[in-house]
Design a binder for these strands. Structure first.
Lengths: 256, 256
DNA sequence: CGTCTACTTGACCACTATCAACGCTGGTGG
DNA sequence: CCACCAGCGTTGATAGTGGTCAAGTAGACG
């Protein structure tokens, strides 16, 4: 067994060497959430689990035929659209358990590209098989619709950020939003690693890199955060929350 | 028969007094596009067609239970989210044949509100019935997924506009995008009525009303458009296209 | 005719982009 | 082993786009 495969397996599953939806630690966040055991097997059968995708590699490119949806098992991915004028807009960062590529449905080609921010393993759901399953398993159809609906909601939140919020508010929102996603995956809400570069963050938030950099420094001076390269610690969630301009995003949300 | 009902019927269908998906002039744009005759009947059966909605009335409010999706028959609707801080963000304007409310799927409540911009008639698709039909008619499921996917694509385009484009570019894009939608509905691409107010436009585009107003005047001075109240004529599509910063959005798109 | 709302126009200034320079780190090749 | 370079991140100085405030106009409606 090659070193590469060893790494893959150790990443894919800490206990078994055959990854399977039923044993995947993400099953409570990912598509299986709404499925029965036998449906889960059916889903598992159609999933292709390829070799890991290296940092900088593309999952798919804007304009490619839409032939699969991807669920992220480990790692992180950014998706972005390129305007005809050449400008890039990062439309989202995707962590483990999230689906990428569903927006290809409308036009039969991907309207955006997806690139790995770090070494990433994915579960590939070939479209033809997925279509059949969707018609056979109502729970799966519903779960995918929920997913798409959630993405619409999220993108619309982002529209609000981009059009109404100041640079400080956007960055605070970004950090808290990420924090919440890590927490839901069982990681620390206060200390994590930013898989994306400052340039990526600034692009996503509709700001210049310099602005993002300056705000990071200012937040540090004010004791809100501490950074060491890509590692970041949120020192004062309450104050960050105030900064978003939104009463409570992450504060006293124990019920969530 | 009351005056109100007479109006409804005359609006609902210019030829028959019983509106039906099969005879609706929008069937080639709306959900029926992918359905067989008998499936179409099944869809038609579940649709509730209520009285017209007056300008300013709400179709649904953010936080309401998600219990129906709406297809617009005539008129226009704006949808918008309200942040906890109170800011409103208009997330879209919807014209005849478009679906509103699909983003309620993820959380079982609508994450946004929808309000009529003018007197509007809608086809209401109760969620419980729609769910059943989705599982029975694969074509319908697919069409709805395409719809959601298209909305994601569209929102992401908007994110690009909001974060990368200047005020002029945004307004030009807005006008051309509307123009294209009117054209696809068989109306003039060059002259139409803006159902929404300047405030709505500015909110949608992430600008101040004053800015929008100034750009409208400047565009007029430069001979790009002519306005008279809410009526607008696009005098120079090519130049507007250049202004979007995107090579060709509406130019020489005869094939589209 | 008065009031209200939508829209327009002008003056001013703040936020953030842009330009420029510099430091740090990791990789490459002499 | 060190010099060099590229990519990323930070910091400073400057300027421009578009927001804000204020006032005025026009159109709709009672």
């Amino acid at each position: 067994m090659s070193t590469e495969n060893k790494i893959l397996d150790s990443i894919a599953s800490s206990k078994n060497n055959k990854p399977h939806c039923g044993t995947c630690s993400l099953s409570s966040l990912c598509l299986p959430i709404a499925l029965q055991a036998n449906d889960l097997d059916a889903l598992d059968q159609v999933i292709k689990r390829g070799r890991p995708i290296q940092k900088g590699e593309m999952l798919f490119k804007q304009g490619d035929d839409f032939n699969a949806v991807f669920a992220i098992r480990t790692g992180a991915v950014k998706s972005f659209t390129v305007a005809r004028s050449g400008e890039e807009q990062i439309t989202g960062f995707h962590l483990a358990s999230e689906l990428v590529g569903l927006s290809g449905y409308a036009e039969d080609v991907y309207p955006l590209s997806a690139k790995a921010l770090e070494t990433t393993t994915v579960c590939e759901l070939p479209l033809d098989k997925l279509e059949v399953l969707c018609d056979e398993i109502p729970g799966l159809r519903k779960q995918i619709m929920r997913n798409m609906s959630g993405e619409i909601r999220q993108d619309q939140q982002m529209m609000l950020q981009l059009s109404k919020k100041s640079a400080d508010e956007r960055l605070a929102y970004f950090l808290l939003e990420l924090s919440g996603r890590f927490e839901r995956r069982g990681f620390s809400a206060k200390a994590f690693r930013l898989a994306m570069s400052r340039v990526d963050i600034s692009n996503y938030l509709g700001l210049a890199v310099e602005t993002v950099s300056r705000i990071f420094t200012r937040f540090q001076k004010n004791g809100l955060i501490a950074t060491e390269g890509k590692e970041i610690t949120l020192l004062n969630l309450d104050e960050l929350n105030n900064l978003t301009g939104n009463p409570s995003l992450n504060a006293q949300c124990d019920s969530q």
